[in-house]
Amino acid sequence: MIKARGLARRFASRQGVVDAVRGVDLDVAPGELVGFLGPNGAGKTTTLRMLATLLRPTEGEAVVAGHNLRTDPVGVRRRIGYVAQTGGTDAGHTVEEELVTQGRLYRMTKADCRSMAADLSARLDLDGIVGRQVHTLSGGQRRRLDIAMGLIHSPRLVFLDEPTAALDPQSRANLWEHIRCLRAEHGLTVFLTTHYLDEADALCDRVLVIDEGRIVAQGSPEELKRSVSGDTVTMTVLDRARVPEASRIAERTCGGIQLRVQDTTVVFRVGRSDAALPVLLGALHDAGVQLAAVAVQRPTLDDVFLTLTGHSLRDEEN
């Protein structure tokens, strides 16, 4: 559905030159739900705008929905939907007017526009508010309208730029559900950007991690998490005097990667905690070291990001 090679974009202005995207290769199969994960300024929006024909790449080629970005942008435009990070609805119009106008821009008949508008409104929980002016909508309602606008012409591929940014957790979960349904019912291919790890984790089949204009990793959320050096094990030793012995045992049985001791707590990483833990616990038991608690944490995409880029996603957000 998307095949891009060496896509790059440089912005030159009086303030200087910004290499927003530096050679991105992408392959998205039909029906996939792919997430583009990266911190602010990583180049997510720029990449999306290039793929949606809104911005000419400085370098690289791409075929989107079967049409070449450079030679047949109109062919691409006919087949894709695009929902911008900040939306694009006109505050003074009603929900229905906006949906119909958008359909007309795709040369749909008025009747088709109305029936699609009704269908999408029902599907995205907008049906009670189709007569309301856009500026009276809540953030979540407006975001669902943005998405409905992007789907009015039944595209096979839709780009969603941060669909759930600035929504409360309940609205986000609700929108995820809508996106999953749309994909399941229509075989829609979805390419979305996010800087929420939980969103990428919960929603996407595959995640591309982008940082400073380059894709630094890709894979399913599970694969990515597995690529990080293991789970984090935190054990609290009951008797303070036995802490050194406990950490020696951990080192011997589990390798003791990134092992650190804090007071009575020993923390380290291990590749496969499910296999390593029984051995560790057995050895501790044999040595007579008693634990007050032991906890295992699976790696998060944040750990992935930290491992890959050397900085945390959350650092960037603050």
Binding site: A52, T53, L54, Y82, A84, T86, L105
Partner: peptide, 16 residues
């Protein structure tokens, strides 16, 4: 105003 609000970009992404 249409440029700032994204209305223009939303129209530019259509085949019009």
């Amino acid at each position: 105003a249409e440029y700032r609000s994204g209305v223009l970009e939303r129209m530019r992404v259509t085949p019009t």
